[in-house]
Design a protein around this nucleic acid. Structure first.
Length: 378
DNA sequence: CACTGTCATCAAAGATCAGT
DNA sequence: ACTGATCTTTGATGACAGTG
């Protein structure tokens, strides 16, 4: 490798096609370093005769692991947090993919009306349908989430599973038919389509989800991550809201492991340092959308409480985020009150962020300014 | 201008890989 | 063997360019 010119998500070629461009210049023989040029402004880059942003990087960074090209200052910050932290996110949290129905248009529905026992909606052909409430679960699909907003479900999901020994198992067909005749009738209408999905036992278990993944992970407090996203953004959920996801999104779930506080995770995943760290190694899509999938966030360095001082700080951070979550549930009546609540949340987050920066041993004000720069990916 | 084939896009489906 | 994660392919959709 002699030189690498990295255009990120900038579109070098005109036209409709989205291309992620990079120029690689190679040479005969080995070299200890190579020239790295991250193009931040395409027009400026084209016009300047001497490239001002180039840096020399050691060839070692081009290993089997995903390639990461931090600036010198970013490298210092990363070294600092890696030095401070013994743990990784995956040690204190479980990161899981969402459900996969393999037939979202059938299993997800938009309630138009409801009474005590039933929900009314239109099927994919626009036909009027009615289904038992009890077989439905609150869900989100195609909806943004924000740490400053209490999640409001925007869909219902048909959930043909029942609890057995604390686990969700598929209802028997007979049981489904008996207990939820309307739901059964609705699904039966799509039997052929459902059976065509490639899944184990499609013949008999035609009314199940396409994958059995994550079925038992929605019954606790958790965080929901939107994916891909412009910015790291996790939201607290205590309503057992269901979502789909995996691969390229749209959602990932995070729950605490061991004795970790879920609100501490919330603080971590909304902190600028997490955003910075993930963006350095994640893949970026047109428009500056980054993937926050499991593989890109699992190794994020975290400090596992070591001193009494850490404990106290973490407690404070948890307290601040607890207040934010509380405020999210307040329904304000006037724009003034709204603005006041937002101001309070912003302040609480700022304080929590600053405390967390302290734990990482980085100077918070500087971290925010370094964060303004854009930088590369794999 | 209508028609048609091509291409890009997005995200879901499908397949495969990996861990327990 | 089974569950869950991730990689690859596909399918639906819409924009667009070429053609008669």
């Amino acid at each position: 490798m002699k030189q690498l010119i990295h255009f990120g998500a900038d579109q070098v070629f005109e036209g409709q096609a989205t291309t992620y461009t990079c120029i690689v210049i190679t040479q005969n023989g080995k070299s200890d370093t190579f020239i790295f040029d991250k193009v931040r402004d395409l027009t400026r880059w084209k016009n300047e005769s001497t490239k001002t942003e180039i840096i020399n990087l050691p060839t070692e960074v081009l290993s089997e692991a995903p390639w990461v090209f931090p600036s010198k200052r970013e490298q210092e910050i990363i070294s600092q947090i890696e030095k401070t932290c013994r743990g990784k996110l995956i040690d204190i949290a479980e990161i899981f993919v969402g459900l996969q129905t393999s037939a979202d248009s059938i299993f997800f529905l938009n309630p138009e009306k409801e009474d005590d026992k039933h929900v009314y909606f239109s099927d994919t052909e626009g036909g009027a349908q009615m289904i038992e409430k009890e077989v439905l679960r609150a869900a989100i699909l195609d909806k943004a989430v924000s740490p400053f907003q209490y999640i409001i479900q925007n869909k219902k999901l048909i959930f043909p599973y029942e609890q057995k020994n604390g686990r969700n198992v598929l209802m028997s067909e007979e049981n489904l038919k008996m207990r939820y005749p309307h739901a059964y009738k609705y699904l039966l209408q799509y039997k052929q389509k459902l059976q065509a999905r490639k899944m184990p036992n499609a013949e008999e278990r035609w009314y199940q989800f396409g994958r059995s993944q994550s079925l038992n992970k929605f019954n606790t407090q958790k965080l929901i991550i939107k994916n891909p996203a412009l910015q790291a953004c996790a939201t607290f959920d205590d309503q057992d809201i269901l979502f789909t996801g995996g691969g390229n999104g749209p959602y990932y779930g995070v729950r605490p492991k061991n004795n970790t506080e879920v609100l501490y995770l919330l603080a971590l995943l909304n902190h600028p340092i997490f955003d910075k760290w993930v963006k350095l190694r994640s893949s970026v899509f047109r428009g500056g959308y980054y993937s926050f999938g499991r593989q890109f966030i699992a190794d994020f360095p975290v400090k596992i409480s070591e001193t009494e001082n850490d404990d106290t700080t973490i407690k404070k951070i948890v307290e601040y985020w607890g207040k934010i979550v509380q405020l999210n549930k307040v329904t304000s009546t006037t724009p003034n009150q709204n603005a006041e609540i937002l101001r309070q949340k912003t302040f609480l987050k700022f304080e929590a962020d600053r405390l967390l920066s302290g734990i990482y041993g980085v100077y918070h004000e500087e971290l925010i300014s370094v964060n303004d720069e854009e930088n590369g990916d794999e």
